[in-house]
């Protein structure tokens, strides 16, 4: 509980810092535009867009589950990256112990990438019957998560256990959920705790 509260506090403080930067960039854009410095105003707006991506990323982190079954969130591994102009926000969170994973333990991670270049090929897989049926094997299949189409894949890792990955495209955003040493039932249960609709609303 204490960990969750600390996490919420850290996220709130960083979001407040980003909001402050956003306001500064907006104010500079306004001043530069009024002074006829168009290229400077342009740079300020570009910066403001990146700040906005960071703010939205922090908001997404707030609504992600703080725990995945028995796996606790790694607060130090949370990160949001903004690349306004090409790729948008890149949000990442992990659960469980990385050291435990190396010795055959369990670890999960969520990554959310807006404007992902992988979206088109994934959509082709999900929406082209021929392609979908050709690629539906014991290693990969189409699924539905909270009403959204997605792809479930599994692979055997170096310790001989099975890792699972679910990819869900939400408009131009790709959500990838991975868990090691798991089963398809478990990953489907866990991915259902991720509020996809709320994430889509924030990132659209």
């Amino acid at each position: 509980m204490k960990k969750i509260l600390t996490l919420m506090l850290v996220i709130s403080i960083t979001a407040a810092v980003n909001a402050q930067d956003f306001k500064t960039d907006i104010a500079s854009a306004r001043t530069n535009y009024a002074a006829g410095k168009l290229s400077d105003a342009h740079f300020n707006i570009e910066q403001a867009m990146q700040e906005l991506d960071l703010i939205v990323g922090k908001e997404v982190l707030k609504i992600l589950p703080a725990k995945m079954d028995t796996l606790n969130v790694n607060t130090t591994d949370d990160h949001v990256m903004s690349n306004s102009g090409f790729l948008g926000a890149n949000i990442h969170r992990s659960y469980g112990n990385m050291m435990a994973y190396r010795t055959g333990g369990k670890m999960a991670e969520i990554s959310i990438v807006t404007n992902s270049p992988l979206i088109s090929s994934l959509n082709a897989f999900l929406n082209t019957p021929l392609l979908g049926s050709m690629m539906n094997t014991d290693k990969s299949k189409s699924i539905k998560v909270q009403g959204y189409k997605g792809r479930l894949e599994n692979s055997t890792n170096t310790t001989g256990q099975t890792d699972y990955t679910i990819e869900v495209p939400l408009s131009n955003t790709l959500i990838t959920f991975k868990i090691t040493n798991s089963t398809d039932t478990e990953i489907l249960n866990l991915v259902n705790t991720v509020p996809l609709q709320q994430i889509a609303k924030l990132l659209q």
Binding site: L38, A41, H42, A48, M49, L52, V56, L202, Q204
Partner: peptide, 16 residues
Amino acid sequence: YNGARYALQQAMTGLE
């Protein structure tokens, strides 16, 4: 945030 992003994109278009 969607509204904010849209407005910023519009501002950028106007500036360019």
